Structures are given as structure tokens and as C-alpha cells.
Deep mutational scan, measured.
Amino acid sequence: GQTTVQVRVPYRVVGLVVGPKGATIKRIQQQTHTYIVTPSRDKEPVFEVTGMPENVDRAREEIEMHI
């Protein structure tokens, strides 16, 4: 079944991970077949990644490449 993982990043890289108009996070979602919730600016900088476990792992690696 599907799993949801929280990926915490430093505040300063949230914009990098999301990309211009969300382009980068969309690409990560498409490439890894996951659904990613982006943290809002006034909340903790935690991305929520949902999908099959192996896909979630890949998405987390993609996010962490920006750190």
C-alpha cells in the first residue's frame, strides 16, 4: 500500500525544491509517481510525500539533493 513520509528541509531550500511556479516539485512528483504537499510559508519546512514506498524513497532523495 501507499505510505506518507515527512521530509524536513532547511527553510532556505523550500523555494529551491518547489522551483519557479512549482515546476521542480511537479517534475519530482511526475518522475517518482508520488503526491507531494508543499509546506506553506508560515509552517514548518516539511514536505509530505505520499506514494508507494520505493517511489517515496526516490522522491525524498530528489528533495534532499537540493539541501
Rank of each mutant, 00 (worst) to 15 (best):
T4Q: 04
S40M: 13
T34P: 01
I36V: 07
R12L: 05
V7H: 05
Q31I: 11
R60A: 03
I36R: 03
G22A: 07
R60M: 09
I63P: 07
G1S: 12
I36A: 06
T50N: 02
K21Q: 10
P45S: 08
G22P: 01
E64D: 13
E62C: 14
V18D: 08
V49T: 04
R58L: 09
R60P: 04
Y35N: 14
V37Y: 04
I63A: 01
P39C: 10
E61F: 09
K21I: 06
T24F: 01
E62V: 12
G51W: 00
R41V: 12
Q6G: 11
Q6T: 10
Q30P: 01
E54G: 11
E48Q: 11
G19F: 01
E48L: 13
V5R: 09
T3N: 04
R8S: 08
K43V: 08
E48R: 12
N55A: 12
K26D: 08
V13D: 14
I28T: 09
G15Q: 11
I25C: 05
T4S: 02
V14F: 09
R41C: 13
E61Y: 11
T50I: 07
V9M: 04
M52T: 15
K43C: 12
V14D: 06
V56K: 08
H33V: 06
V56S: 07
F47I: 01
R12Y: 13
V18I: 14
R8L: 05
R12M: 08
E44F: 00
H33N: 15
G19V: 02
V56G: 02
Q29E: 10
D42E: 11
E54Y: 08
V37A: 10
Y35F: 13
K26N: 07
H66R: 15
R8F: 04
Y35I: 13
Q31N: 13
V9Q: 00
S40P: 14
H33D: 15
M52S: 14
Y11H: 15
T3H: 10
G19P: 01
P10I: 04
P45G: 08
E64S: 10
L16T: 12
E61Q: 13
E54W: 11
H33T: 03
E64P: 07
D42H: 11
K26I: 00
H66F: 15
R58I: 00
D42Q: 12
G1V: 10
V46D: 02
V46N: 05
H66Q: 15
P10L: 03
E44H: 02
M65Y: 15
R58C: 09
V56A: 05
V13E: 09
I25G: 04
E54P: 10
L16C: 10
V14Q: 01
E44A: 11
T38E: 09
Y11A: 15
K43D: 15
R27Q: 08
P39W: 05
V9A: 04
V13S: 15
T3S: 09
R12W: 12
Q31M: 14
V46P: 04
R8W: 08
I63Y: 03
P20T: 07
Y11C: 04
V9D: 01
T24Q: 01
R27M: 09
T3M: 06
E64G: 05
V49C: 04
Q29P: 02
T34A: 01
T24D: 04
Y35D: 10
G51R: 03
S40R: 13
I63S: 01
M52W: 08
K43I: 05
E62D: 07
D57V: 12
R12A: 14
I28M: 04
P10C: 04
V46T: 06
R58G: 04
P20Q: 11
E64W: 11
T4P: 01
V56Y: 05
R60V: 14
E64A: 09
Q31V: 12
I63G: 01
Y35E: 13
P10K: 06
G19H: 03
H33W: 00
E62Q: 14
V5A: 09
T3A: 02
I36E: 00
V49A: 04
A59K: 04
F47N: 07
V9P: 01
P45K: 08
I67H: 12
Q31C: 03
Q29C: 08
V5Y: 03
T24L: 01
G15E: 12
E61C: 12
K43G: 14
I63R: 05
I67C: 12
E64M: 14
A23R: 14
T50Q: 05
T34S: 02
I28Q: 05
L16G: 06
R12K: 14
P45H: 07
G15A: 13
G22N: 04
Y11L: 13
F47R: 03
V13A: 13
K21G: 13
M65L: 12
R41L: 11
I28R: 08
M52N: 00
Y11M: 15
Q29L: 01
D42V: 07
E44D: 14
E48N: 03
V49P: 00
Y35P: 02
G1A: 10
Q6C: 13
T3R: 07
V17H: 11
V13P: 02
T3D: 07
I63E: 02
V49Q: 01
E62F: 11
V7C: 02
D57Y: 09
V56L: 05
G15D: 14
T4W: 01
I67V: 15
N55H: 05
T38M: 10
D42A: 09
E62I: 09
R58S: 05
P45R: 06
V49H: 00
T24I: 02
T34W: 00
N55C: 06
V18N: 09
I67E: 10
R58F: 06
P39L: 07
V17R: 03
S40T: 12
V7L: 06
I63D: 00
R12V: 04
G15M: 07
P53I: 03
I28P: 08
G22R: 06
I36W: 03
R41Q: 10
N55S: 08
I25R: 08
R8Y: 11
A59W: 00
I28H: 02
Q30F: 02
E44L: 05
E62W: 10
V9I: 06
T24G: 08
V56C: 14
R58Y: 07
V46I: 12
Q2N: 13
G22F: 03
T3E: 08
T34K: 09
Q6K: 15
G19N: 04
F47D: 00
R27I: 01
F47V: 02
V18Q: 04
Q6E: 10
V5S: 03
E48P: 02
E62A: 14
V49N: 04
F47S: 01
T24K: 09
P10S: 02
V17L: 08
Y35R: 15
Q2A: 08
E48K: 11
E64F: 13
K26E: 09
R12I: 08
R12P: 14
V5G: 08
E62R: 09
M65R: 15
T50P: 00
E62H: 05
E64R: 09
H33Q: 14
P10G: 02
P39S: 10
R27H: 02
H66N: 06
K21C: 10
T4V: 07
E54S: 10
H66A: 15
F47Q: 04
Y11K: 15
P39H: 08
R8D: 04
